[in-house]
């Protein structure tokens, strides 16, 4: 494309859009490496890693929050997939009454204003002693992640060639054997993608953890929130970066896991 007067408005438009998208991200990146920054300086007066060292000190709690977050997210993936793989297979392959209604049921936790629900989960959990436990937070995150887990695994099983399953059955395998040796391995990349969605959703979750996990469970988003409200912009920005890297990284490679033949079947 040539740089000409005719293209100039387009170039300016895209440049403006790039500023809108990257301005806030860049501002956060700058804060992560700022040691001192006072008005009216346009940029930090002292740059450095001083606050990184502070974040990673054992007593700062950042490492603990990171471990807690990853621990919760991993268990959330296990719980979600354990219930979603059989459900996804049944929804893709077997005849089910009210199938559409069942599919929509998994969307409900993402399609309702959820704060009031979290408040009441917190109350129920308090009564049965699950408030402030890892298990309680894992359960809340699993329900939120279920729509990804079930919908994407349903799409992944739908995209498996039915003839391959029938061939395995003709050769004498049981339904369970043909599922284990044919359907599951072929659907694996799609299920892997759903696992990553569930993992990231749990890693980033704030509101549910806020009502169900406090005061004992501090995940990275809660730690970031506290640092931000206390005015520790450096600590908050460094923590935010740790939340951003896996999310943005996944966005850039998602198409390798989710092939278009699976994507076109999501939600169907």
């Amino acid at each position: 494309m040539r740089l000409s007067i005719k293209n100039l408005p387009h170039i300016l438009l895209i440049a403006l859009f790039a500023w809108v998208i990257f301005g806030p991200l860049l501002n956060m990146l700058i804060w992560a490496f700022t040691e001192s920054w006072f008005f009216p300086a346009k940029l930090p007066t002292v740059w450095g890693f001083k606050y990184w060292e502070r974040v990673f000190r054992p007593q700062a709690g950042a490492i603990d929050s990171l471990v807690t977050s990853v621990h919760i997210a991993a268990w959330t993936v296990v719980v979600s997939l354990l219930v979603a793989i059989p459900a996804g297979y049944a929804l893709a392959r077997r005849s089910l009454p009210v199938r559409t209604l069942i599919m929509l049921t998994f969307l409900i936790p993402q399609a309702f204003p959820s704060v009031a629900v979290f408040i009441n989960i917190g109350r129920i959990f308090y009564d049965i002693g699950l408030n402030g436990t890892i298990f309680g937070v894992v359960m809340v995150h699993s329900v939120q992640g279920l729509v990804y887990a079930v919908w994407i695994s349903t799409a992944a099983f739908s995209a498996v060639d039915r003839d391959l399953e029938l061939a395995a059955r003709d050769l004498g395998s049981s339904p369970l054997q043909s599922f284990r040796t044919v359907s599951l391995p072929i659907a694996a990349p799609g299920i892997m993608a759903s696992a990553i969605f569930v993992f990231l959703n749990s890693l980033d979750e704030f509101t549910g953890t806020f009502f169900v996990g406090v005061p004992d469970i501090t995940t990275l988003p809660l730690m970031m929130y506290t640092a931000s409200m206390e005015g520790n912009y450096q600590i908050a920005s460094i923590t935010a970066l740790f939340l951003l890297i896996p999310s943005v990284g996944f966005m850039l490679v998602v198409e390798r896991f989710l092939k278009s033949n699976v994507v076109s079947k999501i939600g169907v």
């Binding site: 704030f206 988003p221 996944f250």
Partner: peptide, 9 residues
């Protein structure tokens, strides 16, 4: 994929 809490910060 950037969570709201990070957008807030």
């Amino acid at each position: 994929f950037i969570p709201f809490v990070v957008v807030g910060q």
